[in-house]
Design a protein around this nucleic acid. Structure first.
Length: 501
RNA sequence: GGCCCCAUCGUCUAGUGGCCCAGGACACGGCCCUCUCAAGGCUGAAACAGGGGUUCAAAUCCCCUUGGGGCUACCA
């Protein structure tokens, strides 16, 4: 059991082969939270030992994701630290030396089996309905034979000698005791023929060197943990505490990947989610504080987090609830902060979801501050701001003729409503919400219409939309001149539409 | 196929033997509020995968079955 007062050293060790998805980032978040809670360290290490799959943009995305969610690290690439470097490709020599020392001590051996031979072996095993497994043939190769292969340019790997009998078990903090039979584990590669270590070797060495106390990682690693234990044993070092967190699955219940659509934290940022909402939401995937609390800021999460309360079962990632939560965060945020958050989205080009290109950039900030309260509680995504606010910023608006009439209103009723509304609009002073409302209500009464029947066409005429913020606040913000123009325009639209056959 | 892990409403989850004919949240339906849309309030429908044990008592413990997932690479 982990005492929350003992400082932990935990690490997030992604490999830069793709943009980190929510599940991956959730693991980073758990690590970060635990480090902050215990006053320990959160370390980032880049595991780029797979040269073929290395992707520079993925590496950038990793740091961008961490940064966006505010997961600051104590040691890592760029920043450095007492165990630098924190990028595995820069630590290669250490792995090679370690692998060689294992050969020296008899815990590992060179293997010159070619990939083709390995394929053939597996093929045969499959045909014979045997589990595909390396058969340990390299154990019997003499140094001379290896040397010959080396000279012939054959690929040479280093494999760990795994005992053929017995079992390994370990205590996983979330799973409990997990046991594997050693006969299930073959002699696996620890040093590849390109002199790069495999994940198994590299991370064990680094975690040990960096003093990692808790290895927090996805459930997918549970079945290779016995290998990691064997490596520790071979080096005579103590393994860390293992914490295998349940995976986050896509809607089809399979491991999260690109084909599940938007799965990276960065995509959520770009789609208008707030970082605190995403932080809150993903912390609740596979963990809960134990009561009904759902909305928690990061301090609360840090305070309440506990490894013991991490779930056993995988969670399906469904962004519907995240959208709701994002709305909660938007509503809870200050006007000033919302303006700040929404501005970059409004200023994007129209084709990317920004305000119409006809609106001059930079956007009139003072005016935005004036109108944002009108939509504050209506916003679920920051990206929605453009279409929710556009009519405030553009010069004119184009209501559809068929949308102008309100419920149970015919064309005639609509035109007379608009005509009277226009006349009133020209004369009403001051042009302020309360006054506007009382004037327009009086007008509705005089015309023997329900307020809504008068307001609806006016809303559509002034905003171009059927749904909009409260009418009189909106009109006041749009201003008397533009309202008059828009109402005139609507009257015109209706007239030309009505005369058409 | 083999090994390992998992199993409560559609989804996220509470539940650690009696407080549970199972609670909360999202989504969905209804009602209220209301100038539309939201927000808010009330409310409805919705789950312990199945079968055996153990126990006075089981969603909770054990076993089996079923289902799902992961791993099974010179990828991580």
């Amino acid at each position: 059991m982990t005492s929350s007062t003992t400082p932990v050293r935990v690490r997030y060790a992604p490999s830069p082969t793709g943009i980190p998805h929510i599940g991956n980032i959730r693991t980073a978040l758990f690590c970060w939270v635990l480090a902050r809670q215990t006053g320990g360290q959160f370390i980032v290490r880049i595991e780029d030992t797979d040269r073929a799959r290395y992707d520079n943009s993925a590496e950038k995305a990793i740091f961008e994701s961490l940064d966006w969610l505010g997961l600051d690290y104590d040691e890592g690439p760029i920043k450095g630290g007492p165990h630098a470097p924190y990028t595995q490709s820069e630590r290669q020599q250490k792995y090679v030396e370690a692998a060689l020392s294992l050969v020296e001590s008899g815990h590992a051996y060179f293997d010159d089996t070619t990939p083709e031979q390995l394929d053939a072996l597996r093929e045969r095993q499959r045909a014979a309905k045997q589990p595909p497994r390396y058969d340990g043939r390299g154990r019997h190769r003499s140094p001379g034979e290896i040397e010959e292969s080396r000279k012939a340019g054959l690929p040479i790997t280093v494999r760990l000698k795994v005992a053929e009998f017995g079992s390994v078990s370990f205590q996983d903090t979330v799973r409990g005791k997990v046991t594997f039979d050693l006969k299930e584990i073959d002699d696996f590669v620890i040093l590849k023929s390109d002199q790069m270590p495999t994940y198994h070797l590299a991370h064990v060495l680094d975690d040990h060197a960096m003093g990692i106390t808790h290895v927090i990682r996805g459930d997918e690693w549970i079945s290779s943990t016995p290998r990691h234990l064997m490596i520790h044993q071979a080096f005579g070092i103590e393994p860390p505490i293992y914490v295998h967190v349940p995976l986050i699955l896509g809607k089809d219940r399979s491991k999260l990947s690109k084909r599940h659509g938007a799965t990276s934290a960065l995509e959520y940022r770009d789609r208008g989610f707030m970082q605190d909402a995403v932080f809150n939401f993903i912390s609740l995937l596979g963990w809960s504080p134990g009561d009904d609390t759902e909305i928690m800021n990061r301090d609360e999460i840090v305070k309440r987090f506990s490894i013991d309360r991490i779930n056993d079962s995988p969670a399906i990632f469904d962004s519907e609830k995240l959208e709701w939560m994002n709305g909660v965060y938007i509503r809870n945020t200050s006007k000033e902060h919302l303006v700040e958050a929404v501005l970059p989205f409004l200023e994007r080009p129209e084709s990317e979801g920004g305000l119409p290109d006809s609106v001059v950039r930079p956007i009139d900030r003072a005016y935005l501050e004036r109108v944002i309260p009108l939509v504050h509680e209506r916003l679920k995504l920051l990206t929605e701001a453009s279409e929710t606010l556009d009519f405030f910023f553009v010069d004119s608006v184009n209501p559809k003729a068929e949308e102008l009439p309100g419920r149970n209103m015919d064309a005639e009723m609509t035109s007379s409503a608009l005509a009277s509304a226009l006349e009133l609009c020209k004369t009403v002073t001051p042009f302020e919400p309360q006054h506007l409302e009382s004037e327009y209500r009086a007008l509705a009464e005089k015309m023997e219409m329900k307020p809504g029947q008068l307001f609806s066409p006016v809303r559509v005429a002034t905003t171009g939309k059927v749904f909009a913020p409260p009418l009189f606040e909106t009109m006041a913000a749009i201003g008397q001149d533009r309202c008059i123009e828009r109402l005139e325009n609507a009257v015109e639209i209706l007239r030309s539409g009505a005369t058409a056959p």
